[in-house]
Design a protein around this nucleic acid. Structure first.
Length: 344
DNA sequence: ACTCTGTCTCAAGACGCT
DNA sequence: TTGAGACAGAGT
DNA sequence: AGCGTCC
């Protein structure tokens, strides 16, 4: 799923587009999340239990940091993606791939949970990633947080990965403008690059990896020109290649009006009723988490009230210290580390 | 020498107690 | 299950 | 930090 080798390409060829952040850097920001990605993470990590509790805990963590989350739900997947979905559903033993866009019971549970948490959600007409990116472009949200890179070709200026990371500097922010500037290509050319790398919407040219794809796009600017200038015998173009349709999906914004987003206080009693009495979560767990939530919220309110004038200065201070501590990472890139993300 | 592909392996969330 | 890292092997 | 439990 996604554009797998894109993360590596950015790390190697456009490192300037990456910055390491902390979750507290996003206080006050509105951030869109692809719900299916989040839920799938919880399902993969703990297949035995419900992803609802994970969603509950993580959302509260966001709120504690003053982040305003918006959860985006997948709609009807575009026809081009059907092939991928069918294959995935088949191997998973699933008999129904979601062609209709009708909410499953799991989806309804998520909606209910978010409603009780007072967090807004949006039903995307098609791909949730596309909708998230559009929300950024429209200025409705500040950034999109996701684990796969699709948002970038969809046009999201800011993509955040690992926003849930506990440790500092493991939150990674990608800047699309910086990326395009560094690679010296336009957004349209970047979309063509992503198609060549391999996306969910069409085949790729076998034998063309990230290295050559980037060079070719930088030289010839479009897929059409790349095809004309590549050895067709060693790199045969796929039959019935739907690259134009894929390109259109990335570039055309989903047509939907963005509703007004409202955040309200979580309804603790209703949450207990839902999670504990319907979903059999231990009440103590929900209660204690809510208590911690209220506490950190009070702390935050106190801080805000105490230092209105100092607020900006404080943020600037933290920003500077983080930038100073950062070049340590860059010097690392050529060393032979076996464990890349975990090593300091 | 460099690039791409295939195969393998492993870890993946969040909490609370020690 | 999927994705990312390490490695071996074939191709340019 | 490490480890068992959550459902």
């Amino acid at each position: 799923m996604g554009i797998t080798k894109l993360a590596d390409l950015i790390r190697l060829d456009a490192h300037d587009a990456i910055s390491h952040k902390d979750i507290s850097d996003y206080t006050g920001k509105v951030i869109a999340l692809d719900t299916s990605i989040v839920v799938n993470q919880f399902r993969a990590a703990t297949p035995a239990l419900s992803p609802l509790t994970g969603l509950f805990f993580r959302t509260l963590t966001f709120l504690e940091h003053g982040i305003k989350p918006v959860f985006v739900f997948d709609g009807k997947p575009p026809g081009e993606k059907a092939a991928v979905l069918e294959k995935r559903a088949e191997t998973a033993g699933w008999r129904f791939s979601n062609r209709t866009g009708i909410a499953s019971s799991q989806t309804k549970d998520c909606l209910q949970l978010l409603r009780l948490l007072g967090v807004p959600f949006i039903q995307a007409p098609g791909d949730a990633e596309a909708m998230c990116a559009w929300l950024v472009r429209a200025g409705t949200v500040d950034a999109v947080a996701s684990e796969d890179m699709d948002s970038l070709p969809f046009g999201a200026n800011i993509l955040i990965r690992q926003l849930n990371a506990k440790k500092d500097s493991e939150v990674i922010e990608y800047s699309l403008p910086k990326l395009l500037q560094k690679l010296q290509i336009s957004h349209e050319e970047f979309v063509d690059l992503c198609i060549l790398l391999g996306c969910d919407y069409c085949d790729k040219i076998a034998g063309l990896g990230p290295r050559r794809a980037l060079t070719l796009i930088q030289k010839h600017r479009t897929i059409e020109n790349v095809v004309l200038n590549v050895n067709r015998k060693t790199h045969p173009v796929p039959l019935f290649w739907k690259y134009k349709e894929a390109r259109k999906l990335f570039l055309d914004a989903p047509q939907i009006e963005t509703p007004e987003l409202v955040w309200t206080e979580p309804d603790e009693e209703a949450l207990v009723k839902f999670l504990c009495h319907v979903k059999y979560v231990k009440e103590e767990r929900v209660r204690s988490r809510m208590e911690k939530f209220r506490k950190t919220r009070e702390e935050r309110e106190k801080e805000k009230a105490a230092g209105c004038t100092k607020q900006t200065k404080m943020e600037d201070f933290f920003r500077v210290t983080r930038k100073r501590g950062q070049p340590v990472e860059a010097a690392d890139s050529l060393s032979s580390n076996t464990k890349r993300p975990k090593s300091k």
